[in-house]
Design a protein around this nucleic acid. Structure first.
Length: 568
DNA sequence: GCCGTTTTCGGCCCGACTGTTTTCAGTCG
């Protein structure tokens, strides 16, 4: 028995109860219990008494006991016997919830997507009280696109959609201000849709312009305060737009950034003070509404510091509010230690990357092109690397406001050897080692490769330690706790690769690394100037692991970087 | 179903939109 089984059981129970039209607080209690276990970092064996957790009571506790004792839950089995399995997927149809599905089942015996489709086509659904022609049409339309609507989208896919939508929003003159909100603003690895807050005095004009400009498959809702559509993209994605007045912006963006649990916690705090939080402001006991200039002011109203969106999760962020000032922010970042140029597979010259670094206000950067093994990336031979070093030295003469260091992103070869010899490595200021090949090796083989790199005195950092691509591949088999142990032992840096495809190390491992006292570098791995924007994503993502400034190497000023890294 | 330095019962975050209704339930975020 493991935690995942319990979580899945709770979720299934909630689904079936929803289909029985159960009280939604009851359904919610099971979902909440699942969520509590999900967010608890401990494994089942590490929890001394799971039944005493807040949110686990008699009903949910009985399910856990059942699962522990017999490996199955009586409650779930009963539900499975009562509710036809075919009803579950119907919950995915927008507009249909438990109550209406139950009604269709009861009235005309609908027990699957197929029978629903047939009943809609025959006009039987519109004869059921509470259902009409329009509903029937909508269900049929939704069934058409059901298979194409993905569940969750990785952050790198989200970013493309956000940029696309933002282009359209910029074109509309009635929009005074806008911002993305929702899970994307919280820098979640995956999101199910995209949310925008729009400040305007002309919501209906903006709505119509958006409907005209955006690629749209279907309109889910279109009112004066909200527009909800499914975007016509390669993978169709839902987008929500909320229209608010300027003075409501701070409250609205807070509300629609979530998370849901964060909002619930904030509302509880407000309620205890006789106030009521909504997306339009804070309602006081006398009925007057206070609005805010900024989210900072909103939080200050409740005696809280600004809580970064990335850490707005389950309320823990409120308990740990006094730690927030120690977290790394974009303003703290003084360098980017992993960047490519046209010497290997980058799109811009070293000079252009340097200029970009200057415009970011960095005090130093490291150019780290690929090494010779990586032929597809035009990896540098020792000769070419030495030529590049000459170019970098010349640029250093030219620029006085930024220091450019010579580095490499050196491959750790499949046989565990390193792509450059120690003599060449000793000439470099900063050496990154990373794996780009033979991902399918056993954990022992991968760990042997990493250990080799870790033991080399010239290596400073391991880049993208797991090789994962969010939503696409798991990465190679790395024993991260062991790797963190080595990093501590040999004094190496581990990377948080800020590229949204990677975000590697992931949150849970960053937590472990910081606990172990290992330094982390947040790097963009930029292969083009535009990609240097990923630093923002990386910093926000690091906040999820509560990385402190002192943990992050890029917050170090130039002299400390030279002293602790380059000259060491 | 869960919870409680106001409560062991009565709340549970709050509001928008739709479709089917003649004032609101269901769904969604």
């Amino acid at each position: 028995m493991n935690k995942k089984t319990i979580i899945r059981t709770f979720e299934k129970i909630a689904l079936y109860m929803e289909l029985l039209g159960e009280n939604h607080f009851k359904v919610g209690a099971f979902r909440k219990a699942a969520n509590i276990l999900e967010l608890d970092p401990r494994s089942l064996s590490e929890m001394d008494d799971i039944l005493k957790l807040k949110g686990i009571g008699k009903g949910t506790g009985a399910v856990i006991t059942d699962l522990m004792d017999k490996g199955e839950s009586d409650l779930l089995r009963e539900l499975e016997e009562t509710v036809p399995k075919g009803l579950v997927p119907m919950l995915k149809i927008p507009g249909l919830g438990g109550k209406r599905i139950a009604k269709l089942h009861e009235a005309i015996g609908i027990d699957s997507i197929e029978s629903l489709q047939e009943a809609c086509s025959n006009g039987e659904v519109s004869k059921v009280p509470g259902f009409g022609k329009k509903t029937e049409e909508n269900i049929l339309a939704e069934l058409e696109i059901l298979g194409t609507r993905e569940g969750k989208f990785p952050i790198w896919q989200m970013e493309n959609v956000v940029l696309l939508v933002e282009e359209h929003l910029q074109e509309i003159e009635e929009i005074k201000r806008f911002s993305v909100a929702g899970s994307y603003r919280r820098t979640e690895e995956e999101s199910s849709d995209v949310d925008f807050i729009i400040v305007t005095d002309e919501p209906s004009i903006v709505r119509e312009k958006l409907l005209g400009a955006l690629p749209i498959i279907s309109t889910i809702a279109a009112g004066d305060s909200k527009l909800s559509v499914t975007l016509d993209l390669e993978d169709p994605m839902d987008a929500d737009f909320r229209f608010v007045k300027a003075e409501q912006f701070a409250s609205a963006i807070h509300h629609f950034t979530g998370s849901k649990d964060h909002n619930i916690r904030m509302r509880k705090i407000a309620k205890d003070r006789g106030m009521k939080i909504s997306e339009y402001g804070v309602e006081n006991e006398d009925g007057s509404v206070t609005t805010f200039e900024s989210e900072e002011q909103f939080f200050a109203h409740f005696d809280l510091p600004f809580i970064p969106p990335a850490i707005r999760r389950n309320g823990v962020e409120i308990d740990r509010a006094e730690e927030i000032s120690t977290l790394v922010t974009l303003e703290d970042i003084k360098s980017d230690l992993h960047m490519h140029s046209t010497w290997s597979d980058g799109a811009h010259s070293v000079r252009e990357m340097v200029e970009a670094g200057r415009s970011k206000g960095y005090s130093h950067i490291v150019i780290t092109d690929h090494s010779q093994y990586l032929k597809v990336a035009n990896g540098l031979t020792p000769e070419r690397l030495r030529e590049q070093m000459t170019e970098i030295r010349e640029l250093n003469e030219e620029f006085t406001d930024i220091e450019i260091f010579c580095g490499t992103e050196m491959d750790i070869l499949p046989d565990g050897s390193l792509d450059f010899d120690d003599e060449l490595l000793s000439e470099l200021d900063f050496v990154i080692a990373s794996i780009h090949s033979s991902f399918t090796q056993t954990e022992d083989e991968i760990m042997e490769r990493l250990h080799k790199a870790m033991k080399n005195p010239h290596v400073h950092m391991i880049a993208h330690p797991t090789g994962r691509i969010i939503g696409k591949r798991e990465g190679y088999k790395v024993d991260i706790p062991k790797l963190i142990g080595w990093a501590k032992e040999y004094g190496k840096i581990l990377e948080l690769n800020a590229n949204p495809y990677r975000l590697d190390l992931s949150t849970e491992y960053l937590v472990l690394a910081q606990q172990a006292g290992v330094s982390i570098a947040i790097n963009t791995d930029a292969h083009a100037i535009e990609q240097m924007r990923f630093m923002d994503t990386g910093v926000k993502y690091s906040q999820k692991a509560w990385l402190k400034k002192e943990t992050v190497v890029n917050t170090w000023p130039l002299d400390k970087f030279i002293r602790e890294i380059v000259e060491k």
